[in-house]
Each structure stands twice: as C-alpha cells, then as structure tokens.
Amino acid sequence: MDSRHLLCTTVYSTVFSPCGKFVAAANNFGHISLFNFEKAVTLNSLKWQKSIITFKAHDGPIHSLVSTKDCLLSGGVGPVAAWKWNDILERKPAKVYTLHEPSQGDEGSFSSNDVNVLACDETKLYAGRDDNVVCIWDFNSGKCERMLIGHTEYIHDIAIISPNGLVSASEDGSVKVWDLRMAQATTTIEPHQNKELSRPQYGKWISSVATDDNGQWMVCGGGPKLSLWHLRSQSQTAVLDCPEFTPYTTVFHENFIVSGGNTNSVHHWYTNGDEKASIPCGIGTVFSLTFNKKKNTDSAPLIAAGTSHKLDVFCNPSYRSHTLNL
C-alpha cells in the first residue's frame, strides 16, 4: 500500500497460523497481510518487521479473521472467504470456497449483510452479522445449519462457551446466552440496567464479550462498564472500572482479563476487578488483541492492532517489545 493508504489504515483483526510462526492481519481496505512472526521477534532486522505478502481479499473492510488447522477464514463485506494457509505461505493465495449467507426471510435467497465477527471450533463456524443474526455453518457440509435470531440491533461480538453454547453481544445493549441445540436464547443480560455498570452518556451498546476456556465466566462491556459475570448463576461478580474506557476487544488469558479499546493502552485486570496494569501502546484505538498460544513459554506473546498500519507486539506483558509494519 502507498503512504496515503497507510495513514488511513485500520487493522480490525489478527490471527496466528496453526503453527504459531506466522500472523495474519486484516484491514479496512480489504487486504490481508502476512508476517513471519517468529523471525520478526527473534531477528533484529527491519526486513522481518514488514509483511511478507499482502493480498486483496474483500471489496471492503475485513472485520474478522479466524483459523482452522488448514484454512484462514475472513469475514467482512461480502461472503465469508476461506484461504489455504499453504497457498498463502507459498505467496499464491486463492479462495478455496466462500460461504454465502441465507437471509432471514427466504431459505433459498442470500443476503449481502456484512459480517462483523467470526468464531470457530473444530466443526462449526459462527458469524455475527449486521442484520442482528448469528449464522452457524457446518464445516463438513458447507451449509448454514442454524440462524440465531433474537437481537434487535447488529451483532458486535460473539464467544463460544461450549459445543452447545454461544454468547453474543449487540448494539441493542444485551448479551444473549444461546443453547445451540434449540437455536434459542436461554438468558438475556442487559448490563445497562445495572446502576453500578450503566453509563448513559456512552449508550447501552455492548461492544465486546469474551468467555474463559471452561465456559463458566464471561466478561462484557461497551457503553456500560466492563464487568465479569458467572454464567451459570447469571450473577455479576466484579466491575473492571477504568474511567472513560470503552472496550472493543477483550480476552481471558491465564488468570487475567486483558482488554483494549478507545485508549492507547492495553489494560490487564485481576478477576476480582482490580487493574493489574495499563501498558501504553502506539495505537490510538485498539480493535484486536491476539495471544500466540502455540508458543511454549511462560508468557505467550500478544499482538495489539487497531487504528494504525502498525502492530504492537508484547513478548512480555509489561512492555511493548516489537512493532510490525504493513
């Protein structure tokens, strides 16, 4: 990309390759860039801090990337697209398949709704859309087998609880807990109704939701303050308070909660709600936080991305160690 485009670049999503040696980044111009992450952090060379390949994947912004053992999947404007990791690494990216989304009204028709967020497990792909629906595809058949309908505004974020459970966060101010066997919401949580969490000046929308590996705990926030919930009892257990902070991405990592948003910092909290650290980064607004869980180290490297053509790398959670450039 030329310098003018770089100045206007926003990276909405990053994901590590199955081997953990490479990282892909998707931006608002519909491009996917690939970095040799392993060499970038081990070799002191500007060469490896730049992308090794950038290719056009969508006609508009790409909002989300996820990875299976063989493919990279991208969601944004247009159909969800799948790309083989081996093809990308050989500098010959080509779409393996696309997943067209059925509309709400007619099973035989297809929609052109944007995908805001993707999540996947070994057998299914989940897509939160701007028409208020979560679509679920089966990888084996390639068909959309369920549509989760219940939100009244578009979906900002989703998180997998278990093979039979999912949570979704929406502009409508609610977080819904879904039983995928029935394709029905079993619980609706509205943080803005809680006086301890409500911030009317910022609205009621929920921009970020995450669950722990055991599916027992959930953290969510947006207009309301970031908060921790016990899913089975549907009870709020902690407030992760940070004045004027709006989260756009949140993850559980080890015994901590890590979040980025409208401040140029990465926030780390203990699960009791106390803030452990606020680490400065070079990104004005953070939209993506991705840990490299393939690395067998005490501290998994973290990549932060957002309103910049640069990606910040934290090999140690207490400081920014490297910068990658699109």
Results as ranks from 00 to 15, higher is better:
V266Y: 14
T9M: 15
T54F: 00
P200D: 01
E122R: 13
Y319N: 12
N140D: 13
A210Y: 05
K84M: 11
G273P: 03
P200H: 01
E145K: 11
I279Y: 02
V117N: 08
P317N: 06
S74W: 02
E196R: 09
L197T: 02
D138Q: 12
P280A: 10
G75M: 05
K84A: 12
T68F: 11
N214G: 03
A159D: 12
L46F: 09
I206V: 06
F314I: 07
P317I: 04
G108E: 13
A300F: 12
V239R: 08
P280M: 08
E254T: 11
T186M: 03
V167Y: 11
A305D: 11
F35A: 10
W85S: 04
V239T: 14
T211G: 04
P93N: 07
E101C: 12
R320W: 06
S67T: 11
H253P: 06
G282M: 13
I149Q: 03
T54Q: 00
M182L: 14
K95S: 14
T297Q: 14
A300S: 15
G203R: 01
S288Y: 08
K295E: 15
P163R: 03
M147T: 05
D213C: 09
P200M: 01
H100K: 14
D121G: 08
M218H: 00
L89W: 08
K293T: 13
A24E: 03
N296Q: 10
L125R: 01
E196C: 02
L43Y: 09
K143Q: 01
N272C: 15
H5Q: 15
P61H: 04
N316M: 10
P301H: 04
R129V: 07
A277C: 01
N140K: 15
C220F: 01
G105T: 13
A277I: 00
K47E: 14
S198I: 00
D59A: 10
D130F: 11
K276D: 06
G165C: 01
A119Y: 06
W269S: 01
F22P: 02
S103I: 10
A57K: 09
W137F: 15
K225I: 01
N255M: 09
S13F: 04
P163M: 02
K225L: 02
E244V: 09
V134M: 04
T187V: 15
K39I: 07
A40N: 08
S321P: 06
A169L: 08
D157F: 07
A238V: 04
H192A: 09
T152H: 11
D121E: 10
T211F: 03
H100A: 07
E122M: 08
F139T: 07
D213G: 05
N264T: 06
R129S: 13
I136Y: 00
V177L: 13
I257Q: 11
G173I: 05
N272P: 12
A238F: 04
Y126T: 10
E145F: 05
F287W: 04
S162R: 00
P163I: 02
F35T: 10
E90G: 00
K176P: 06
N28I: 05
A25I: 08
A159K: 05
N86S: 05
H31G: 02
G165V: 01
C135S: 14
N164K: 13
V266S: 12
G284F: 08
Y270L: 13
K295T: 14
F22Y: 15
T307L: 07
M147S: 07
Y270T: 09
A94P: 02
G261A: 10
S278C: 15
D241T: 02
Y12L: 09
K294F: 13
